[in-house]
Amino acid sequence: MVTNSASTAIGLSASKIIPLGMTALLGLFIVGFVGFSHMEVVHNAAHDTRHSLAFPCH
């Protein structure tokens, strides 16, 4: 059985587009929600998490 490697490569890259796009959208939603949240609990939880990971936040 002979398969076309070019079509296989295109199929694999196309199958990765949706998961990568959804991951990017989820990340942007999380950063936007936490970064601009007016709820103090959400902001403080994110702030404490950044400090626990030694990530500079201010």
Results as ranks from 00 to 15, higher is better:
50 R>C: 10
12 L>G: 08
47 H>C: 01
40 E>N: 10
55 F>V: 15
21 G>N: 04
10 I>D: 12
44 N>L: 02
2 V>H: 14
13 S>I: 14
31 V>T: 06
49 T>W: 09
12 L>N: 13
33 F>L: 10
51 H>V: 01
18 I>L: 15
25 L>A: 10
6 A>P: 02
55 F>K: 08
24 A>K: 08
46 A>Y: 12
6 A>K: 13
20 L>H: 08
22 M>A: 12
20 L>D: 12
11 G>N: 15
35 G>T: 01
6 A>L: 14
26 L>R: 03
35 G>C: 01
40 E>V: 06
48 D>P: 00
52 S>M: 12
30 I>N: 00
49 T>H: 08
56 P>I: 08
14 A>C: 10
18 I>K: 13
13 S>V: 15
7 S>Y: 03
22 M>R: 06
32 G>H: 07
23 T>C: 08
58 H>R: 03
48 D>W: 03
30 I>D: 00
27 G>E: 06
28 L>Y: 09
44 N>E: 14
19 P>R: 06
6 A>E: 13
54 A>V: 14
4 N>P: 00
16 K>C: 13
50 R>H: 10
40 E>K: 14
48 D>A: 05
39 M>R: 08
11 G>I: 09
9 A>P: 01
4 N>C: 02
47 H>S: 09
37 S>E: 04
50 R>A: 15
1 M>P: 05
57 C>V: 05
42 V>Y: 00
33 F>P: 02
54 A>N: 15
16 K>I: 14
16 K>F: 14
23 T>P: 02
24 A>L: 11
57 C>Q: 04
34 V>A: 13
17 I>C: 09
3 T>S: 09
27 G>P: 04
1 M>G: 09
43 H>Y: 08
48 D>G: 02
29 F>T: 11
22 M>Q: 05
23 T>D: 11
42 V>P: 00
16 K>T: 14
22 M>H: 03
56 P>H: 03
52 S>E: 12
26 L>M: 04
41 V>K: 06
57 C>I: 02
38 H>T: 07
38 H>F: 02
28 L>H: 07
52 S>H: 12
15 S>W: 07
2 V>Y: 15
30 I>V: 05
31 V>L: 10
20 L>R: 10
48 D>E: 10
47 H>M: 02
40 E>C: 01
52 S>W: 10
45 A>F: 11
49 T>G: 03
3 T>Q: 11
8 T>R: 14
39 M>F: 06
32 G>R: 03
48 D>S: 09
54 A>I: 15
5 S>W: 02
15 S>C: 04
11 G>S: 15
1 M>N: 04
8 T>K: 14
20 L>K: 09
32 G>Y: 07
42 V>S: 00
18 I>H: 03
25 L>P: 02
45 A>K: 11
18 I>D: 02
18 I>P: 00
7 S>V: 13
14 A>H: 04
1 M>W: 05
30 I>A: 03
37 S>N: 07
15 S>N: 14
14 A>T: 10
17 I>V: 15
11 G>K: 12
46 A>L: 10
48 D>T: 03
25 L>C: 09
34 V>T: 15
10 I>Q: 12
55 F>S: 08
47 H>F: 05
37 S>K: 05
6 A>Q: 11
31 V>N: 07
12 L>C: 08
7 S>W: 01
43 H>C: 00
38 H>N: 10
40 E>G: 06
26 L>S: 04
13 S>E: 10
